[in-house]
């Protein structure tokens, strides 16, 4: 692809002097023109003046409170999904075993089932995790 002076002027007028802002498919050809054309370099200098003015404007800085408010509303892990995962099935299996065993064993296994239940449910998200 080649870019002539006429098209180069259109590119400069629209996108300014920074090659990063130029259309990707024309960028290399436009840069080649700049390297070989005094007229293209003159156009570039004029556009660069406006770019420099715009780029010197300070960016607004969002408040910390804004980020805090947004993070507080971020999605949390789905607890229902957790019950369908391995830990959830482990609890169900443990509970099933309890029903099929003798009373003496039942007490011991019930305790194990409660332990598994704790493990499956204590992974709820701590607020502090979100805010470091």
């Amino acid at each position: 692809m080649t870019v002539g002076l006429e098209r180069f002027e259109q590119i400069i007028e629209a996108y300014g002097a920074n090659p990063r802002h130029w259309p990707e498919q024309e960028r290399a050809a436009a840069e080649h023109l700049v390297a070989h054309s005094e007229a293209a370099r003159a156009m570039l200098a004029s556009a660069a003046e406006l770019d420099a003015w715009l780029d010197a404007a300070l960016d607004p800085v969002p408040s910390d409170l804004l980020a805090h408010r947004v993070l507080k509303a971020a999605p949390r892990p789905n607890r229902t999904f957790g019950w369908a995962s391995g830990a959830g099935w482990a609890v169900a299996a443990a509970a099933g075993l309890v029903l099929g065993l003798s009373w003496g064993q039942q007490v011991q296994l019930t305790n194990q089932a409660y332990d598994a239940l704790d493990q499956a449910t204590t992974w709820s998200v701590d607020e502090a995790e979100y805010f470091g």
Binding site: A74, P75, P77, N78, V125, E129, Y130
Partner: peptide, 9 residues
């Protein structure tokens, strides 16, 4: 979307 806090940050 899966609730990853680090990704949200």
């Amino acid at each position: 979307g899966r609730g990853d806090a680090a990704a949200a940050r």
